[in-house]
Design a protein around this nucleic acid. Sequence first.
DNA 1: ACGGCTGATACT
DNA 2: TAGTATCAG
Length: 718
Amino acid sequence: MPRVARAESSSGSRVIAHIDMDCFYVQVEQRKQPTLRGHPTAVVQYNSWKGGGLIAVGYEARKYGVKRSMRGDEAKKVCPDIQLVQVPVARGKADLSVYRNAGSEVVSILARRGRCERASIDEVYLDLSEAAETMLAESPPERLESISEEALKSHVLGLHMDGVSTKDCVKEWFLMSNVHRRDKLLACGALIVAEIRLEVLNETEFTCSAGIAHNKMLAKLASGMNKPAQQTIVPFSSVEKLLEPLPIKKMKQLGGKLGTSLLADLGVDTVGGLLQFSEEKLQECYGINTGTWLWNIARGICGEEVESRLLPKSHGSGKTFPGRQALKTVYSVQKWLNELCEELYERLLCDLEQNKRIAHTLTLHASAYKLNDMESLKKFPSKSCPLRYGIAKIQEDSLNLFNAGLREFTSICSAKIKGSKQHEWAITGLSVSASKIVVIPSGTHSIMKYFHNQGQTCIPIKEPDGISTQNAASLSSSGNGCCVSLHLPGPEINTCENEAKTNLDMPCLNPYEDEIEVCKARFDFMFVNVLIYKDAFHMEKFTDNQDPFLSRMIQEEDRLTEKLLLSSSSGAENGLGSKLTQSHMDSHGPVLKSENQKRKFDKQKGTPSILRFFQSHNSSSFPEQDHVSTFQENEASSSGLQAINGSPGRKSTCSLVEDEFRSNAWNYKSDEIDPVVLNELPPEIQAEVRAWLQPQKRANTVKKGSSIIHYFSPTANS
DNA sequence: ACGGCTGATACT
DNA sequence: TAGTATCAG
């Protein structure tokens, strides 16, 4: 909750829109299956129990009294004609990817018009202040020869003095010239939103509703007032009358316990009721932040900014196991964790490919009860650890996290029963999630670029003003190979030729620190890619087994490499991009075998494409060399990577990669690093590199290591 | 011990 | 920070 409110009047009025898709899941299904249009429809989560649980209800069905959180059977009873569509199922669980992707479609349209915040899978905030100002300056409504039909259908709160709000009234309101400037801005905003909503409809076939107001809170309130497919405007003058009788539970954030205690403590059940309490009083009751926040929202004040964020901050995959489905063996837990991790990892790869983002933290949540314990109210603890890319690693780590949690869960409270049999616990819910997702800086979008960029290794590259990093490229999606990629128009963002620009959005830290962050992110990016390929390589042996997921994964990763390489200009020149993927599977790459014949890798048929890429890109003589050094020509001596490997002439990037491929037990010692090169690095980088060389704790011990090295920790405990 | 699944945020 | 709790839809 945004606890700091900005004075509304101090800096000119903002124009904020909240766009809310109408019964979104239903619309998505209706688009997929147009015969459903016009019929009472609901989306149910696959669940043979009682016909499944409704998670979205179309407006035709609502007329019959069908409600969310009814079971499918009840819905049928109330509305026998209802069409129940099932949510897609993958890996034994509901998969919401199609809806997520559909949401991305909408967001990419909205984002063209102003700062855009994806508030949920089907809700978006838009800051239209600039656009409205521009319109007011250049072509104000009163100078328009006509107001669009859609805009004329707007609802203007407070306009209708009880009863009739005709189109004429609305038209008059739009054209009113003797009104406060802030209302004219709202009118402009409403015209824009009407336009946007038509765009959305044309391009996606989805209808939405919208609220237009001076802040997020009011916009959100308004968007729900006239649904579906309508928009509602909240003029400043209508705020008091709107809020005064409004049940407190209708306000966002007050629908839960806080709202309840407001009634219990203060006897207040409408927003207007709050007005009688001083800010101090509210602070006494609910703390300084919440108190002030309450005081403000009662007056329609909400300074919360629209964040520029089109992508989610975390990904998660979870499932519940209610009743007797509860999991009672570690085995079954592991089985389900593996499924959940598969989905999560698929989405992570999507995010990496489409948005160039890397997640850094893996978290496991579980819910459980104890069988013998009378008080089974104990919570199963959440656990997290550094996230290592690679499906097997995520699966292993999540299981370790679970076991760590389970030990706490079982030990702390019920040490009483010593002969601990299997069934003292049961798991009713599992979820894995990935967070701390960071965008790789522009210019790092291919490994080639990294290596070609050497002279100026760590120049921070910023986006053009007004476009935040994570809005770059395309919108995330996930799941099932249907990675929708929607590119935003606008300024070129992804060129490494862009030099450092000043970023106005950021308070700009020490530029030097900034530089280091960019460096770290680049390391992360490259290493993650290498490791993904290592994993794909391992998986090759499974392709014969026709495991659909594994082979899909391999394809996925092939595509990723190809894209990355094609996107690199020099890769394209050499024709490497396409050659590489072709050669991925064939068997000409015994380059590594000289050293470690026993290693698993040597039994594989191919050389991982990334590695091969390194090889072929470089000296032509590479394959013959026994212990090769590469990239000598390309790299300036300031390369941080070289420093990790040692001196430029001795052991370089390629051999670092090789070593990683050769050895499951990755353990560089400090003495393998040329101290001269290490000392050339900026002090912070030196520190970081040295830190990498320390032994790292991992999931078992549940401690977060430094940003990069944990990717390299061996997979197995052995 | 059934509304399931997914996300954000604030507190500590 | 990691872990918990609350909220929303």
